Amino acid sequence: MSDVMPDRGKIIAVTGKGGTGKTVISTLFVRFLSEVDVPLAIDADPASSLPAALGIEVKRTIGDLREEIARPSAIPFDESMPTDMMLEKKIGELLINTPDFSLLTMGRSEGPGCYCLINDILRHAIDRFSKRFETVVIDCEAGLEHLSRRTMRDVDTLVVVSDPTMRGVKTAGVIKEISDQLEISFDQIYLILNKATDEDRAFFEDKIKEIGIELAGVVPQDENVKAFDRVGKPLIDLPADSPAVLAVREIMEKMKLIGG
């Protein structure tokens, strides 16, 4: 084994069709990784569901920083400091640190225009802060936005979450196809079939093979997730014997993200 340390931590991105349960999977990834180290969780979805799932209240986001940059009078810049260092400092002020994990939230843009600047800031944040953490978990926006804008260009492990529907699996295939076309390579790419049964696994297994993604495992429908969501309880606090928690632990062991 080489004694040379990597210049950044392992980056894990979780993506997929909307409504498949990406945030549940991302939350449980953070939970198990925090047993080993202090991971960085990045909510890269403008819907901003990850903070609540982690039990965190966010007051400022990358979207807020974008608005401040768009109004130069609102944010004092030190002209003696290089722009990239100043930007890194401002992004660092958005980090929420807990004993178990740190969190950075993309948020929404309140002003007119596209998300180009927010995505640029997010890409800069991933580049810079992945050097400070052993692992980074990114809860991506549903669809192909971050792939098409190459925000996810340095991801080590891409996890595509699908529900047990043909639409979900086809979306996973499109994500794989687009990443190939854009020449975005991953060390590992897996599909997790969420809210599914063993019968669903048997039905979709061959179809998943056809799209060229390895099936990491199946996460069953979990009534505890429904109950927690109903009252707004953080999903990171799901019981240790909850079906989704047990399944995700097994999947992460298979993917060698945590030890067995």
Results as ranks from 00 to 15, higher is better:
6 P>Y: 01
14 V>D: 01
16 G>A: 06
19 G>S: 06
21 G>S: 06
27 T>D: 05
27 T>S: 10
29 F>N: 09
35 E>H: 10
36 V>E: 13
39 P>E: 05
47 A>M: 06
50 L>T: 08
55 G>Q: 11
56 I>W: 03
67 E>C: 12
71 R>T: 11
73 S>M: 09
77 F>H: 01
78 D>Y: 07
79 E>G: 07
80 S>I: 07
81 M>I: 14
83 T>E: 11
92 G>Y: 06
92 G>I: 02
93 E>Q: 13
96 I>P: 11
96 I>E: 12
100 D>P: 01
101 F>K: 14
102 S>K: 07
114 C>G: 13
120 D>G: 09
122 L>A: 03
123 R>T: 15
128 R>V: 15
130 S>C: 11
131 K>S: 14
133 F>S: 06
134 E>H: 10
134 E>T: 14
137 V>T: 12
143 G>M: 05
145 E>D: 13
147 L>V: 12
149 R>M: 02
149 R>K: 12
153 R>C: 00
154 D>I: 07
156 D>W: 01
159 V>N: 02
160 V>M: 04
161 V>G: 03
161 V>C: 04
162 S>Q: 03
162 S>Y: 06
169 V>D: 02
172 A>T: 08
176 K>V: 11
189 I>Y: 02
192 I>H: 01
193 L>R: 03
199 E>G: 04
201 R>I: 10
202 A>L: 09
208 I>W: 02
212 G>S: 04
215 L>Q: 03
217 G>T: 09
221 Q>T: 09
223 E>G: 12
224 N>L: 04
224 N>F: 12
229 D>E: 14
229 D>H: 03
230 R>C: 00
232 G>R: 12
233 K>S: 11
234 P>D: 08
236 I>C: 07
236 I>N: 13
237 D>W: 01
238 L>G: 09
239 P>H: 00
248 V>Y: 00
250 E>Q: 10
253 E>L: 03
254 K>F: 14
